[in-house]
């Protein structure tokens, strides 16, 4: 009999306590964040979509090498002397840029947001932004192109680079021929040249190696 009434007491009291708790919650401020309008402050070192500042990119390809999922595709063209890369030809830290970057594509469908590409960048031009809403209806839409070079510009720069390379090759060939002719004309001169070589090896070495390369080609 005692158990019977204690059951009733327990039931009634627990219902009242429960309803008291829910009743109190009714007047509390909601914790909902109305997402598209209201946003949480993201943490300082959040890792979201990458951004590449092409003004600073020197096309060193280190980010693409560091990427564990190979989502960065990067192509470069050598700049001809006198040609200015970008607006000033310099990075914001004052380094000279020697490469045009006609393609710098990051495929965010592949990207794993590991931030490994950010650390090796020598000019700190690739970094994580706070943009995390970039869903797309097509996978192709997730490929982001950061280079602002047009196809014509790319073709032009390629032509220039090829022409320059050919010119250089010709010059070197001529230089090599001249060197060869001078070698055959007098052994004394050759000895002198050899002596010069020992004094200043780099230019000669370079010409030799480049000669070899040309021969291979």
């Amino acid at each position: 009999m005692k158990a019977y009434f204690s059951h009733i007491y327990q039931a009634v009291s627990s219902i009242l306590i429960g309803m008291g708790i829910t009743g109190r919650h009714m007047f509390q401020k909601p914790v909902t964040i109305q997402y598209p309008e209201q946003r949480l402050q993201l943490p300082e070192r959040e890792r979201n979509r990458l951004f590449v500042d092409m003004e600073d990119c020197i096309g060193c390809d280190q980010c693409a090498k560091a990427c564990p999922v190979n989502c960065i595709e990067l192509k470069t063209i050598k700049a001809v002397p006198g040609d200015i890369v970008g607006k000033t030809g310099l990075t914001s830290q004052g380094k000279k840029k020697a490469l045009f970057v006609p393609t710098f594509t990051i495929d965010f469908a592949k990207c794993c947001y590991c931030q490994l590409c950010v650390f090796p960048c020598p000019t700190e031009c690739i970094f994580m932004t706070d943009v995390f809403e970039f869903s797309d209806f097509k996978r192709a839409g997730l490929k982001y192109e950061f280079s602002d070079m047009t196809a014509e510009q790319t073709a032009e720069k390629k032509m220039k680079a090829e022409e320059y390379a050919l010119e250089q090759a010709k010059k070197k060939e001529e230089a090599a021929k001249a060197a060869a002719s001078s070698k055959s004309s007098s052994a004394a001169e050759k000895k002198a040249a050899e002596a010069k070589k020992s004094e200043a090896p780099p230019p000669e070495d370079l010409t030799q190696t480049e000669d070899n390369k040309n021969k291979e080609v």
Binding site: T22, H25, M26, F27, Q28, K29, P30, V31, T32
Partner: peptide, 10 residues
């Protein structure tokens, strides 16, 4: 609405 208020939602 009441269920939302009770669970601190809107």
């Amino acid at each position: 609405k009441v269920s939302a208020w009770i669970s601190n939602r809107i």
